[in-house]
Design a protein around this nucleic acid. Structure first.
Length: 430
DNA sequence: AGCAACCTCTTTGTGCCATC
DNA sequence: GATGGCACAAAGAGGTTGCT
């Protein structure tokens, strides 16, 4: 009895996890990731289907012939070949993946919109025909970006993670815009992101990832496919504060370059920093914009996090825009606002980029004190509903939350504020 | 049977603190 | 500043369970 309830709760857990895994962000990479939920045989079928679609995008209906399957799988028994093919396709019936277009809209794409099973007298002439949604077909073509890899190689991979990594490497083997002349793709992905991309269990720690994903993948991919890869561990401070492996930098080499494909995506590293920022609710592209801005103006991680904290608490319509503005001009709303009035944007940018060390930023303490005290007074007089009061203040004055986040990690400011608060409490709390 | 997930225990590494 | 002890988390590894 107890066991039964345990297993059902486990099943529920699985269901929930799988549902989350199916719902992926709207981008070309989605197709690759959506396939992670399929098993080995199903992925083989998708490989065959994708290959057909790549060859003839405009075709209405496609036909998988037993003769082809026989070739790919090296199946001697023809009658088994059809059964094998039918079974695999049948397992895909009703399956698909969900794209999250935005907060309110999600779209479900079934892999196949129509499947026709045709058994011929001569087994080899048996075939299965399928139709696919036009949008999905377009996405497939886009997701593959002309990376025409051989189905044979993918089928050779028995480990599910090896297969997933292989697709990932095929997708990114040319991601090396730093050295476009090299045939080696070099890119860095945070462990957290890798676990998500490869749909690893939540229980996986780096050590599990290493032995169940990386190790078998190296054994299978290197040597039996058209790709060779190496990786290096990037160590740093984990969330817990201790040191550990934060990300992996992959070096992917195409062994038989039939056609050199120029990457159409800018070289970009998905770092733990990226993952952290995304948790605030930004899309990948938005994070990329913010981080590229931050890099341009030498903003360190602390600066970025604190600036974004302020953005989170602001009621600005374009949070990304405000975040980018902060990266460029600095996020002290007091000095930034004043500078804007007097100087040209370029000048403020130059000024801002001279702040190399966050701790040494020049706060306008007089202005801060004035604002802080004003807030204190208004808080005193209208203490009934503080939140409501904050909402109604149209003027961009510094709030307590903002102040707190500004104070975090800045001892100098902390001291100043502490003495100010003491002053306030001393005069106000009567 | 084989693979993947999970559990558990040991070892190693790191940060913090007190003491000298 | 150097050293040692302690606590905690990561890493490593062996074994078990569950699923197809």
């Amino acid at each position: 009895m107890a066991k039964k309830s345990e297993t059902t709760s486990q099943n529920e857990k699985k269901k929930i996890r799988k549902k989350g895994g199916n719902e992926v962000a709207f981008r070309p990479q989605s197709i690759v990731e959506a396939r992670y939920n399929l098993d080995r045989r199903q992925n083989d079928i998708m490989d065959i289907a994708f290959g057909m679609i790549d060859d003839q995008v405009d075709k209405k209906e496609y036909s998988i012939r037993v003769a082809d399957v026989k070739e790919y799988y090296n199946i001697e028994d023809k009658s088994h070949a059809y059964r094998f093919l039918k079974q695999a396709v049948e397992s895909l019936e009703g399956k698909g993946f969900k794209l999250k277009k935005d907060e309110d809209t999600s779209i479900f794409y079934p892999w196949f919109s129509k499947i026709t099973y045709v058994r011929a007298k001569n087994e080899e002439n048996s075939h299965i025909d399928f139709k696919m949604d036009d949008d999905l077909k377009r996405m497939i073509v886009e997701s593959r970006r002309g990376a025409y890899y051989s189905i044979r190689y993918a089928i050779n991979l028995s480990n599910k993670y090896a297969k997933r990594l292989y697709y990932l490497f095929q997708d990114r083997k040319n991601w090396n815009l730093k050295n476009p002349d090299l045939e080696t793709g070099v890119f860095t992905i945070a462990i957290e992101e890798l676990l998500r991309m490869l749909d690893c269990p939540k229980s996986y720690k780096y050590t599990d990832f290493k032995r169940y994903v990386i190790k078998p993948s190296m054994e299978q991919i290197n040597g039996s496919t058209d790709i060779y890869f190496e990786y290096e561990e990037n160590r740093g401070k984990l969330k817990s504060g201790q040191k550990g492996v934060l990300s992996l930098t992959f070096h992917v080499t195409q062994l038989n370059p039939n056609s050199k494909v120029v990457a159409d995506a800018a070289f970009y590293e998905i770092t733990s920093q990226h993952v952290e920022i995304r948790k605030r609710g930004y899309q990948d592209a938005e994070v990329r914009d913010i981080l590229s801005m931050a890099k341009r103006y030498n903003r360190d991680d602390q600066f970025i996090q604190e600036a974004l904290e302020i953005v989170d608490h602001s009621k600005c319509e374009s949070k990304v825009g405000l975040a980018c503005y902060f990266m460029k001009n600095g996020y002290n709303p007091l000095s930034a606002g004043r500078q804007l009035e007097k100087e040209t944007p370029l000048k403020t940018a130059e000024h801002a980029s001279s702040y190399h060390n966050f701790h040494q930023r020049n706060y306008d303490y007089d202005e801060l004190e004035k604002n802080l005290l004003n807030q204190g007074i208004s808080k005193e007089t209208k203490q009934t509903d503080m939140i409501e009061e904050e909402k109604t203040t149209e003027k961009r004055e510094i709030s307590f939350e903002e102040l707190q986040s500004m104070m975090a990690g800045n001892p100098q400011l902390q001291q100043e504020i502490a003495s100010l608060l003491e002053k306030m409490n001393g005069t106000g709390k009567k």
